[in-house]
Computed example of a mutant assay.
Amino acid sequence: MIAVYGMSASGNCHKVRLTLDLLGRRCEWIETDSAAGQTRTPAFLTLSPAGRVPLLVRDDGQVLAESNAILCWLADGTTLLPADAWQRAQVLSWMFFEQYSHEPYVAVARFICGWLPDDSPRREELPRLHARGREALAVMERHLAEHTWFGAPSLSVADLALYAYTHCAGDGGIGLDDFPGVLGWLSRMQAVPGIIPMPPPPGLRNTD
Results as ranks from 00 to 15, higher is better:
164 A>E: 03
53 V>W: 07
182 V>Q: 06
86 W>T: 13
116 L>Y: 05
98 E>D: 08
123 R>I: 10
56 L>D: 15
137 L>G: 02
25 R>D: 07
183 L>F: 02
147 H>K: 14
194 G>N: 15
66 E>N: 05
198 M>S: 12
69 A>H: 02
70 I>E: 01
27 C>V: 15
50 A>H: 12
133 G>W: 01
165 Y>D: 02
177 D>Y: 01
10 S>C: 13
194 G>I: 14
147 H>W: 10
36 A>R: 15
56 L>G: 14
43 A>I: 04
108 V>F: 06
127 P>N: 13
114 G>Q: 05
119 D>Y: 07
193 P>C: 12
138 A>I: 06
168 C>T: 14
187 S>E: 14
98 E>M: 04
93 S>W: 01
102 H>R: 03
116 L>S: 06
99 Q>P: 03
126 L>C: 08
154 S>V: 10
30 I>F: 02
9 A>H: 14
93 S>D: 13
114 G>L: 05
85 A>R: 01
90 Q>S: 09
138 A>Q: 12
57 V>N: 08
79 T>P: 07
92 L>N: 03
52 R>S: 03
193 P>M: 13
195 I>A: 10
201 P>H: 15
59 D>K: 12
39 T>S: 08
110 R>Q: 09
91 V>T: 06
184 G>T: 14
153 P>A: 11
126 L>Q: 08
40 R>G: 14
26 R>C: 14
71 L>T: 03
208 D>E: 03
9 A>M: 15
88 R>W: 02
29 W>D: 07
105 Y>L: 02
202 P>F: 09
144 L>D: 00
168 C>V: 15
24 G>C: 14
129 L>T: 03
22 L>H: 08
109 A>Y: 07
142 R>D: 13
183 L>E: 01
183 L>V: 02
163 Y>D: 00
135 E>D: 12
110 R>T: 06
177 D>W: 00
150 F>M: 02
162 L>M: 01
189 M>V: 11
43 A>W: 03
59 D>L: 11
76 D>R: 06
68 N>D: 11
10 S>Q: 14
57 V>E: 11
147 H>V: 12
145 A>E: 11
117 P>M: 09
15 K>D: 06
93 S>V: 06
118 D>F: 02
151 G>V: 05
88 R>P: 01
26 R>T: 15
123 R>V: 09
148 T>F: 00
70 I>W: 03
149 W>D: 01
112 I>Y: 02
39 T>R: 01
181 G>F: 07
189 M>W: 10
174 I>N: 06
49 P>L: 12
72 C>L: 06
7 M>H: 14
4 V>R: 08
139 V>K: 03
61 G>V: 12
87 Q>G: 05
46 T>N: 12
173 G>S: 10
75 A>N: 09
202 P>C: 08
197 P>F: 09
133 G>V: 01
7 M>P: 00
197 P>G: 09
4 V>W: 08
192 V>S: 08
141 E>T: 07
152 A>P: 05
12 N>A: 09
159 D>N: 10
63 V>Q: 11
69 A>V: 03
6 G>D: 12
199 P>A: 09
63 V>C: 12
153 P>L: 04
57 V>W: 08
5 Y>I: 04
52 R>A: 04
38 Q>L: 13
56 L>H: 14
